[in-house]
Nucleic acid binder design. Structure first.
Lengths: 160, 160
DNA sequence: TCGCTATAATAGTCAGAGATGGTCAATTCA
DNA sequence: TGAATTGACCATCTCTGACTATTATAGCGA
């Protein structure tokens, strides 16, 4: 099974064991694995994305390099908060709970469903920097709200 | 006479004798039995479903595979722990859905609740430039799983 | 020495081929 | 008649190679 990509991914992660970032030469790495240099880009593009918690920096030309930085979940100076803000749409937990409570009051969701929704947007469910939690919460909540109304359409709901 | 499907089912179960999960190549297996590859899907879809206590995970492309995981348990307190363990720190959407399907099949959640859960862990709910979509999904899912079992304790569930 | 340029040394992008697995409708079988 | 089987077509993942973009530096002339 051990695909080339998997090996390269593993290799890079082992190199990073000791710190939060490393610098490699794309060509050296490719040679080490006996593959095309662009294969390195492929691995970086599929396994070291922002979604995976990494940021890639590089430089061409003489003395060029590829730097792989592992993002920190907390702490200042990570790209994460910046990106999240750009996405916009944000809601604090209290407001989210207020909305869910309203849904329950109106009997649009059952008590159990409301609890599930609260669990999904709860502070501890969203393992992100504080400022980011609201953003993700907004996204998750919106998706669930849409589902609530789809549920209502599909079949009536009378119980609580 | 043993149907092909039965033989394949038997074969897979023998392979699993030694552990709770195996990985196979769909095409290899098909070749072994001299049948169409889609026949393997048929067997998996009819004999290794969540209500049979199995979860299927797979991957396409070079180095692709089909992984068959047995969920042996009874006793729901145990099931929660198992599921939490299975979710781990990171989980792709398909696997999360498989677990939710399992809950639904075992009637531990209602159809609407299952849909809500899927909405909460859906790709587009987490499609933000945040770190590790899979990691977030795992976190959200685990929180919801715990809630599911709390809901069960609090009050019986009879509807679907 | 100061600029400028050519060249070497890097890395990035993208389209396409190959390798898998998935789906679904039609057909066959028990 | 329902389960089993197949095959055509689709989706996804890897990997490569040709072509492009960027940067450092050596060499050269003013």
């Amino acid at each position: 099974m051990a695909q080339l990509s998997d090996s390269i991914e593993q290799f890079i992660k082992e190199l990073m064991d000791e710190g939060s970032q490393i610098e490699v030469r794309r060509n050296e790495l490719a040679q080490h694995f006996g593959c095309a240099p662009s294969q390195i880009n492929y691995v970086l593009a599929t396994r070291f994305t922002v979604d995976h918690g990494y940021i890639i920096e590089s430089r061409r030309g003489g003395g060029g390099y590829v730097r792989i930085v592992r993002m920190r979940e907390r702490g200042e100076g990570n790209l994460l908060n910046m990106l999240l803000k750009r996405v916009g749409n944000s809601i604090p937990e209290e407001n989210a709970c207020a909305i869910i409570a309203h849904l329950l009051d109106r009997k649009l969701v059952t008590a159990n469903e409301a609890k599930l929704m609260r669990a999904a947007v709860a502070r501890n469910a969203l393992a992100l920097p504080v400022s980011a939690k609201d953003v993700l919460r907004a996204s998750v909540l919106k998706n669930m709200l849409e589902q609530v109304f789809r549920n209502l359409e599909g079949g009536e709901r009378h119980d609580v």
